[in-house]
């Protein structure tokens, strides 16, 4: 199962501890995560199921925007936000 970490800045809004999630693609891993953290879906995906513009998923250190991208059982998946604002 992939190891999933969520950026600490999200902890201001939702509690999502690091966890192990099954799935062969980024999309499947995210769905697995949302199954136990329902509210998280709207923080990560837009209404059409795509990644929010300023959200990035790293798989083993590589930024991924294609949700069909394969994930290995040993993969490290990190969900984080782009930096912006003022």
């Amino acid at each position: 199962m992939a190891h999933v970490d969520v950026a600490p800045i999200l902890a201001r809004h939702l509690t999502v501890p690091a966890c192990e999630v099954a799935g062969e693609t980024v999309a499947e891993v995210l769905e697995g995560l949302f199954a136990s953290h329902d509210r998280l879906r709207g923080y990560v995906l837009d209404d059409q199921g795509g990644l929010r513009r300023h959200i990035v998923v790293f798989v083993d250190g590589e930024a991924v925007r294609d949700l069909a991208r394969a994930v290995r059982p040993t993969s490290e998946v990190v969900i984080m936000q782009a930096l912006s604002g003022g």
Partner: peptide
């Protein structure tokens, strides 16, 4: 919330809770 989209919070007693937002 910018990166994380629009959220709706509701307070009935002392605590705020997150409720659903409209989804297209």
């Amino acid at each position: 919330l910018g990166h994380f989209g629009t959220k709706l919070r509701r307070r009935r007693g002392a605590e705020w809770e997150e409720v659903a937002v409209p989804v297209y």
